[in-house]
Design a protein around this nucleic acid. Structure first.
Length: 485
RNA sequence: GGCGGCAUAGCCAAGUGGUAAGGCAGCGGUCUGCAAAACCGCGAUUCUCCGGUUCAAAUCCGGAUGCCGCCUCCA
């Protein structure tokens, strides 16, 4: 398959280094707050990557870390009156709640930075020995950026350009403003670990270098993360690891694009910060997952509750058809008179198109388009009185349901029981609209009575009342069915 | 200032050289007591603008305009 490699700035044919075994490392969260939509996007994108790589038949070993010690955690701990470890614990638990809801598979290994301190100290020592790092009198250790010739390769910058942005904090003893911390001396009241340079804690970039090498071995097949991590985090990781090992660090770098709100970056200062919890209070988790996959993973994605409603309706369409297909498959009498060669050929094309989209840098937006084309195909078949009775339509219906399951497995979508899902959707819409179920049912009963005595005027008045409340009434042979608009 | 990305119908969005997927909304039709769902039909002679390459460009090249991101913690 083709994957865009940040290192080259273009798509490239991806093949694992070791036959049939993909080793993938993705930067996880720093556990200091609830996860927002941006975290959700990154998690969903790499979840789909893992699922698709497995779908393709490769064995995947997936490692995603937790950063459980850093400045932000320490700051948060002070604010919440907890220890840093307690803060990390709390938000890691919240991470699992949110991500489990979104159907994110657990990684094969989910290491925490604080479990790998000895390895980080060893790597730091090695870098000092090789002349790539130095300790300062205060007990900090810095990476000597200028000693590493390839610095800037990943993010496409050169050292001279970076100079202007670099800063030196008071009290630091950097040889060069560009140098970054491998080890930070402990300040009063901060958590610390003993080291050859005194008490302190690791710098942020170090953990990924150590854990990825320990758990997967270098070079990694794929290293992933959010676009913002490319610089400086990934650039620094790469520098550390390559300097220490004199070899490649990662063969493919994959970065997902940002989620924006009102076409602007989401940030706490702008007050446009939306957490996964905010969304799940009003929408089914699968709707969020679906929404996040409706745009190519590298493009910016604009979030709004309106587009969530749109995504909800779109997903509903798929589940509705799935439900119809299941009903159809349960028929007992079939005729063998009618053949469906055209539909069969169309389905074959769609199958080819779906695969082609996914193979092309994980084009989930394109792939979803083909899912909808398949849904239309199914609906057309189910609608036709001749077609739907034929045994050929039974076979085709089964094939379509299989495709939905199969593709759904790769996308992490469409996996719920359709009736159960539609019921959940209705419930969450009732909640969102603030509807009173008892009141709705009372009105429906009254309308039922009116219809029974053919008082259609009254029935229509009641329909209008319900419509104004946001309730859609449908008359079926089995009686009234209602839904929330 | 440096580096990078994006610009496709009312909205969202695929499409990277061969003549514009898909979703939402809208309109007409089938169905219905009326509706809804579903299906069928309708919508960009055109892909921000201007040049260029080519038999052929939304797709490649150059320029302009607009928006965004990174360069500091950030998915």
């Amino acid at each position: 398959m083709l994957l865009y490699n940040t290192l080259l700035g273009k798509k490239e044919e991806f093949l694992p280094l070791r036959e049939d075994h993909v080793r993938l490392y993705v930067c996880g969260i720093t556990a200091y707050d609830y996860c927002h939509i941006g975290h959700a996007r990154s998690a969903v994108v790499f979840d789909v990557l893992v699922r698709y790589l497995r779908f393709r038949g490769w064995k995947v070993t997936f490692v995603r870390n937790f950063t459980d010690i850093d400045d932000k955690i320490i700051k948060r701990a002070a604010a919440e009156g907890l220890s840093a470890a307690e803060v990390a614990e709390k938000y890691i638990a919240a991470f699992y709640e949110d991500m489990d809801a979104l159907g994110i598979l657990r990684a094969d290994q989910e290491p925490r930075a604080t479990d790998h301190i000895p390895g980080m100290i060893r790597l730091t020592e090695k870098l000092i020995e090789k002349g790539y790092a130095y300790a300062t009198p205060r007990g900090d250790v810095y990476f000597r950026v200028r000693a590493f010739a390839e610095y800037g390769r990943l993010s496409g910058r050169n050292i001279e350009e970076l100079r202007s942005g670099a800063r030196v904090e008071p009290g630091e003893h950097k040889e060069d403003p560009l140098d970054f911390a491998l080890w930070k001396a402990a300040k009063p009241n901060e958590p610390f670990w003993p080291s050859p340079w005194g008490s302190g804690r690791p710098g942020w970039h170090l953990e990924c270098s150590v854990m990825s090498e320990d758990l997967l071995g270098l070079p990694l097949d794929i290293h992933g993360g959010g676009q913002d991590l490319a610089f400086p985090h990934h650039e620094n990781e790469m520098a550390q690891s390559m300097a220490a090992t004199d070899g490649e660090f990662a063969r493919f770098w994959v970065h997902n694009g940002f989620v924006q709100v009102n076409a602007e970056k989401m940030s706490k200062s702008l007050g446009n910060f939306v957490t996964i919890r905010d969304i799940l209070a009003n929408f089914l988790p699968e709707v969020l997952r679906f929404f996040l996959l409706t745009k190519h993973y590298r493009s910016p994605l604009d979030f709004s509750f309106d587009s969530m409603e749109e995504a909800e309706k779109a997903l509903q369409r798929i589940y509705q058809t799935t439900a119809l297909l299941r009903e159809h498959g349960a028929r007992t009498k079939w005729s063998d008179a009618v053949l469906l060669h055209e539909l069969e050929a169309e389905l074959k094309d769609l199958e080819r198109d779906w695969t082609k989209a996914m193979e092309d840098d994980l084009n989930t937006a394109g792939a979803l388009g083909h899912v909808f084309s398949m849904v239309r195909l199914a609906n057309r078949m189910l609608e036709d009185k001749g077609w739907r009775k034929s045994v050929a339509s039974k076979t085709l219906g089964v094939k379509i349901l299989e495709n939905l399951q199969c593709w759904g497995q790769a996308l992490g979508l469409f996996l719920d029981d359709p009736q159960a899902w539609l019921t959940k959707l209705k419930d969450i819409r009732i909640r969102r609209r603030g509807l009173d179920k008892g009141q709705v049912e009372g009105l429906l009963a009254a309308r039922e009575d009116a219809r029974r005595v053919k008082d259609f005027q009254r029935a229509d008045t009641l329909r209008q009342v319900l419509t104004d409340m946001g309730v859609e009434v449908r008359d079926t042979p089995a009686g009234q069915v209602w839904d929330v608009a």
